[in-house]
Structure formats: structure tokens, C-alpha cells
Design a protein around this nucleic acid. Sequence first.
DNA 1: ATCAAACTAGACGCGTGGGTCTAGTTTGTC
DNA 2: GACAAACTAGACCCACGCGTCTAGTTTGAT
Lengths: 221, 221
Amino acid sequence: MGGTRTSGDRRSPGARGRIDKRQAILDAAFTVFAREGYAQAGVDVIAAEAGVAKATVYNHFRDKENLLREAVAASADQAMAENMAVVGRLSTEDGDLRARMEDVGLRLLRCYCDERSWALRRLLSGEINQFPDLLDIVHGHAVDRVTEALADRMARLTVAGALRARDPLVAAEQFVALLTGPAETRSRLGTREVPDAELRAVARAAVDTFLQAFGAETTDR
Amino acid sequence: MGGTRTSGDRRSPGARGRIDKRQAILDAAFTVFAREGYAQAGVDVIAAEAGVAKATVYNHFRDKENLLREAVAASADQAMAENMAVVGRLSTEDGDLRARMEDVGLRLLRCYCDERSWALRRLLSGEINQFPDLLDIVHGHAVDRVTEALADRMARLTVAGALRARDPLVAAEQFVALLTGPAETRSRLGTREVPDAELRAVARAAVDTFLQAFGAETTDR
DNA sequence: ATCAAACTAGACGCGTGGGTCTAGTTTGTC
DNA sequence: GACAAACTAGACCCACGCGTCTAGTTTGAT
């Protein structure tokens, strides 16, 4: 949570537990919370899934609420790292822009459609009324950062003459929307497994539309 | 649920309650479920919010699960009706297409950003693991129908020469995505009130991009 | 006026689950 | 080997909430 580090040294002052156990608990907590929802999830179940005694859970985390926050934060950090790695591939180097954008689009879609990614979004949506601060943890550190990184790349591409995005942030926002929107309906909120071929088609369609609007070359047809 | 009727005659065989009470319970149930989540929501609270005794709730609905399903179904029906009414405005008549699309886009955004609409989506996301059939109730009767109705309109517009949508379903899907995607980030999953001016800007940007890709007239700049 | 169905307020049984505690075991360190 | 911190299994307390039940009241139809 507190930066770009995946996890590890965030042991709160009082807790003195083994680190591997802590990680196992976080993983199990996320899994169970995502599967059953916060209220339905039992700490007993989380402990069992982590292969740990219930008391150990309370040794590492103050209470159930705190456990939820930390589990979500860890998962969001991981998801953001994957997304940022993909965006980094959209460099300003030469080569076929369309092909590179389709590649990036497809990889972003794979991140987006990952089971844990869906689970995170569903969990966030469901518990956001009870825990409004979850939104800051996830959005402030994940979604917005990715879109802005994408906007940076698009600004560079515009300066280089490969694109004409008057407002790079809007362009990035729309590119993401063209990917995630169709993916959302197609995967039925993450309950359906979307075959890779379909993801490729979505990415191609998104890039098509995007380049018609923001491409430098006047693509006829 | 069972058709296009808003509600009314769906009284299940055994239940014999007054209809207005039933509706009050459904409204209250949706409100409370959306606010606190299924597991946290208490039937006592729902009954109180509806101004009704708890026993009356169980007189109309078998149990808590059934109440959730019916409440979601009613809410989804209402939301779909509003959406369909908006889509119906995109007729094939003459006039400035861009202006008409911006109008429809804005109205769709207002539906999408409505508080009850957000509540429905959040509730659905959060409880979808526990109640997978909620997805069929909502998607089968709302989201897909709206997109398809929009696709129909776009096909008509293409035939009329006002648009060139090779695949109307993809075009409709992308138009919706260009609206809802930005709206989702802007409103932070429905927790932030988006001013109307911002919605207008989102609609304009969406129509800009959409027409660059699918417009018939070669809009230069 | 009469009767039955719907409704109300409130109590209650009962299962579930958060969080604590105890007693005993493992693990790392010096 | 000795010591302390971490861990385990399980019992335990207690609050909460679903669903039922009872006894009495309102409502609508004839």
C-alpha cells in the first residue's frame, strides 16, 4: 500500500508475526472476502484457508475490518504493478503503431479480465458503502495512475507526430473505456471466461475506433 | 420482471397481501440492501423503513433471499424502462445527427449516473457470487436489451446513409463504453456527484470520437 | 353488523460468528 | 540447552439477526 513495494515490511508496530504467515493470511483473506463478501466471510474460514490458527490472524491484524483493508490494498498494489508494466510497453519507438497498440490493448484486457482483478472490483463495489476509504486505497493507487501513465505515452506520441490527441487524458480515458466496456459486458461482470480470441477482437475493434479518431495518418475507409 | 410491466400483478400464489404495502417493502428492501449489503441488511430495518411490521414482510416474501431477488428485479425493470425511453429518441428523422447523439448520450449518462442505478450495479457486483441468478435477471432484461436497441437504431441510420457502422452491435457497444467508462471514473463508482456540465463534456467527447470513427460525412479536423 | 384476511407489536428460539482466553507446542536466537 | 516470541487447537462469551409465533387490531367485502 504505502508506495510501489509489493508488500513485506509493512508490519505494524505491535504485531510481531512471521512474515510468510502474514502473507498467507492476506492471500486467504482476499480469496475468501472476494468469494463470500465481507459480512459473510468468517475469520475461521480465512484462518483455515491460510493454514493458520484463528488467534494468529488476530496476532497480525487488529480486527476483521483492518484485515479487509490490508488485503485489498495488497491486491490493488499487485494489480497496478501488472497494469503499469503493460503501459510501459507503449514506447515512442518506431514500428507499426497500430500493431503496438493492439498488443498493449490485448495485454491490458488480459489484466482486466484476470480472475483476481474481477474479484477486486466486485469486492470494492459491494463494500464501498461500508468502507468508503477502500476507494482511496484502490483508485488513488491504481486506476488513475494507470490512465495517467497512458496519457503520458499518448502525449509523447502526439509530439512525435504519430498521433493527434488534443487532450491526451481524454484520449487515454476513452482508449481504456473502449477496452474495458466491451470486456465487461462480454465477461458478464467476470463470471464468464472470455476466450483469448474474443479479447483479441475487442482489442482490434478498440484500436480501430481509436485510430480513426486520434490517428495521424488519415486512415481512409 | 416477467415482461415489460413495471410491477403489480406478480403476487405469488400463496401471498395475499395488499399491493401498496408490497411495493413499499420492495422499495425499502432495495434501499437497505443497496446501502448495507445483503448480509448486513436486517429484515427488521427493512420493515421499519417500509413502515411495516416484520411479519408482513414474511407474508409477502418467502424469505430474505427471495426478497432480494424481487427487489433487484423490480429495480432493474425500472432502470431498463428509463434507458429504453432514451434510446427511442434516436430516431431516423432528419436534423443534426451530432446534436441528437449528444442529446441521447447526455440522457443516457443521466440514467447511468442516477443514484439508484449506481446502487443497483454495486449491489449486483457485490452479491453476484452468492446469487449468480441476479445476473440473468438484470443483464438479460436490461443491459443487453438496451445495447441491442441502440444497435437497431444505428443500423437504421447506416441504411439511411447518416452513419457507416459496419457492425452496428460493435458500434453500439463502443458508444455505450465511451459514455459509461469515463462516467465511471469521474463519479468514482457512484460515490461522487458528477455535475451536469461534466456529463455534457463527456457526452460531447464520446460523440466526437464516435463520429470520427462511424460518421458518414468526413469530418475533417 | 359480521366475518375473514391482512396487519401490528413484541417476544422468543436458535444458529452463527467476532473476538478473547488458556494451555500447551514449535521455532529462532544466543 | 535455555529463553522468549510466535503459533496451535479448542473452548468460551456475547451480540446479532433470521424466521416463527401469539394475541390483539384494522381493513374490506357482503
